[in-house]
Amino acid sequence: MITIKEVARHAGVSMSTVSYVLSGKRSISEETKRRVEQSIAALGYHPNAGARALASNRSQVLGLVVPLRSDQNLPVIMQFVSSIVASARDYDYDVLVLTKEAGPGEAHRVTARSMADAIIVMDVESADPRIPELRSIDAPVVLLGMPDDHEGLSCVDLDFETAGRQMAGHLAERGHRSIALIGSPPAVYERGTSYAARLLHGFQSETTKRNMPASVHSCAPGYDSVSACLDAVLHPDRGITGLVVHNEAVLGTLLLELRRRSLDVPADLSVITLCPDDVAASLPVPLTSIAVPAQELGAIAVEMVMTRLTQEQAPEVRLLQPRLTDRGSTSTR
């Protein structure tokens, strides 16, 4: 392992000079600083995390409040987590995972005790009860999601409302006149999860604008729930020809049940969904979809929080515009 002594020898300076360059505690000439930084890069030196934390008064840790719920799709959640962890490492930061069950005061506890320098929060609700606490934290906070009241907080998310509009509009533009939304499990709507509420609002706004008959069906995972949901969706009185699905966990079961009922996608029923690209492309019938850009959103959340750690930065909201990929699962009527 490369030591600070070897860096100093390589750069032709004292060990204290290298230490001052790393900590920024003393002014060092630009020429000397550049020479030390070049030696660090050339030798592949990595400062000891504990020593660096003492020098900078930082923990080099980001706190991540992440949902661990039975009604969440864990593989998708883990795409966000892996992106945040990988992006944090690019800044030489580690990630401390805080579960929802730890309580609403956990984010304040870990920052007050210097266990984490900043907080990223997932599983954001429209009327999130944690907002007052998050506003009071004396550390940067970024929400991966957007509550109704986000004043004074930085947020990044997919524009779910626009996604709902686009998916309904996609079917309307192909001549569909009666469509349905198969949405998230009931518990997701009951607790007012922001992304689900925003997509629902976009879907309903678009169908109302186009004067399209449309129904909404919350669907729990599991074969019996999916079958019962389809019984309601496909009731002959509805005349449904197109489905918008916002529920990654049921997609595979849904397609298998449609096949069991001798319904072809897209000849008999068009299907469009919102989910990660790799999920949509690997299903028994590849689905036209709007992507959940988990990797991009996680990386942006880390970049936003690191920017606020290093400089004065006003709170901002970034909503990524939806990206639709046509995989042939919607037909023209």
Rank of each mutant, 00 (worst) to 15 (best):
D148R: 07
L274Y: 09
L251W: 09
L274E: 08
A228L: 12
Y195H: 15
R260S: 14
P221K: 02
R210H: 07
L243M: 07
Y195C: 11
M146Q: 15
D149A: 14
Y223W: 12
P213T: 05
L171W: 01
N247I: 06
T193N: 13
S270M: 03
D148P: 00
D277M: 10
A180L: 10
L171A: 04
I182K: 08
R191Q: 07
C275D: 03
H246M: 13
R174M: 10
L258A: 07
S205Q: 15
G169E: 14
S218F: 02
V188F: 00
H217E: 10
A196Q: 02
V279E: 11
E151P: 07
L243V: 09
L153Y: 11
V244G: 08
S225M: 11
S227Y: 00
M167F: 04
R165G: 09
L254P: 08
L269R: 01
L200I: 04
D157M: 11
M167G: 06
P221V: 09
H246S: 13
R177L: 11
L153T: 04
L254V: 10
L181Q: 04
S225H: 15
F160K: 00
G239P: 01
L230S: 01
S178R: 15
A187S: 14
V245R: 09
H170Q: 09
S270A: 04
P221A: 10
D148T: 11
G183L: 01
G192Q: 04
